[in-house]
Design a protein around this nucleic acid. Structure first.
Length: 408
DNA sequence: ATGTCC
């Protein structure tokens, strides 16, 4: 039978199954994946999604199943980063012609940008808004966090309370979108902010020290792993699961606040009950594949079990997709997390200007200044090609086009 | 992606 993926094989190592037909696949990313596939902890094979590109530690767009061990740098530092999308009962005709008031209401309701140091500092301070409906759950999260910090006080050096309900920077965003039937959606991309970053970097360092202590040689020190039964393994799993829960709750709060902000802007009532999806794309989870219990690390990949809903966003000017998983076992039930970059932020800023960005984001109510050129759609792969390359992983349920975009 | 250091 004709498979929709390419296979990269190395003698004695796990194969790499890559859903990259018709999309760019850099040689540097392939080498990084060969390094990962050479590690004995890999179960069965590695799966590569069509938005693949070079990352720090692990490749973005990779799915790594491991037995009795995890690679903290494969999860990365934005632990639990992911997407949430909610369909509303509103339609396009119920929105005002000029969307700038809605954009400004979103910007006010969802703190975004850098917390300190250089940059715009728009989310500085505790002016975020934790809705009452999640206040109890937040207390539970805090209790769990205290327990982790009691064992690893270095993690506590973070401003985690002030970050709940805040979006962050870079490719994190909040959008108002229309689907193919002109229904209005709210969609958001964010993660575990400073606290997840602290947990990630802390355990990546511990894993490296473990490698040195046991004199284990790796093709790349960023592939340092923690073995089940060793000193830090359980604590990492506990902390990473906590950061994932923090990230999901963070998105839920921002979605709540964005909906409330939209309500204040419109003279009509609407509801949001019909469909909401909240999924991680940087995370690790315990799953069973090919007859073995293992840890599955998805770095820039979304779980797509049969019938499971996911979100695959395009870039600032491109379409996004609400998808339903097809449960493809060779992909470990996964799909891509977006379009995937084709060039670095530095390169995008060098070769494109504000005029290019204005043209690429025509019809979108968003910032179009020099600060967002690194997010120009040209810096990403063509999302249509990316979707074509994974048609045996997911089916498209809704196609969204943004009309308002708030970038972090 | 993040916060802090130069």
């Amino acid at each position: 039978m004709c498979k929709n993926y390419n296979v990269i094989e190395q003698p004695g190592h796990a194969p790499i199954k890559a859903w990259t037909k018709g999309v760019p696949f850099e040689e540097e990313a392939q080498q990084q994946l060969r390094n990962i596939a050479s590690m004995p902890l890999v179960h069965s094979h590695i799966a590569v999604m069509p938005d693949v590109h070079l990352g720090k530690g692990a490749t973005i767009g990779s799915v790594i199943p491991s037995v009795d061990a995890v690679i903290p740098a494969a999860v990365g530092v934005d632990i639990g980063c992911g997407m949430v999308a909610t369909k509303t009962t509103l339609t396009a005709s119920q929105l005002p012609d000029n969307l700038s008031a809605i954009r400004h209401a979103f910007e006010a309701a969802v703190p975004h940008g850098r917390t300190s140091g250089r940059g715009r500092s728009r989310d500085r301070g505790a002016w975020h808004n934790i809705p009452e409906i999640v206040a109890g759950e937040w207390v539970k999260l805090q209790t769990r966090f205290e327990r982790i910090c009691a064992k690893h006080p270095a993690i506590k050096k973070t401003n985690n309370v002030n970050h709940l309900g805040t979006m962050g920077t870079g490719n994190h965003f909040l959008e108002l979108c229309l689907d193919e039937n002109n229904a209005v959606w709210i969609m958001l991309h964010s993660g575990s902010r400073g606290v997840g970053n602290r947990i990630g970097t802390y355990f990546i360092e511990l894993a490296k020290k473990e490698m040195q202590r046991h004199q284990i040689n790796l093709p790349d020190m960023d592939l340092a792993y923690l073995e089940e039964g060793s000193e830090y393994f359980d604590d990492y799993v506990e902390a990473v699961e906590w950061a994932q829960d923090f990230a999901a709750k963070n998105r839920e709060i921002m979605m709540f606040n964005a909906i409330a902000a939209l309500r204040k802007q419109l003279p009509i009532e609407f509801s949001t009950a019909e469909l909401a999806v909240n999924c991680h794309h940087n995370y690790v989870s315990r799953e069973r594949h090919f007859g073995k219990d293992c840890f599955v690390t998805r770095k820039g990949a979304v779980r797509a079990k049969k019938g499971e809903m996911g979100i695959i966003p395009g870039s600032m000017g491109a379409r996004s997709f609400i998808v339903r998983g097809l449960g493809n076992p060779d992909s470990f039930n996964s799909c891509s997390h977006g379009a995937g970059r084709v060039m670095s932020r530095t390169k995008a800023k060098k070769i494109y200007n504000v005029d290019d960005q204005i043209k690429a984001t025509e019809g979108v109510e968003c910032r179009k200044d020099a600060s967002v050129i690194d997010e120009i759609p040209h810096a990403y792969k063509d999302i249509e090609h990316v979707m074509e390359a994974q048609k045996d992983l997911v089916e498209v349920v809704y196609t969204l086009k943004q009309i308002v975009c708030v970038k972090g």
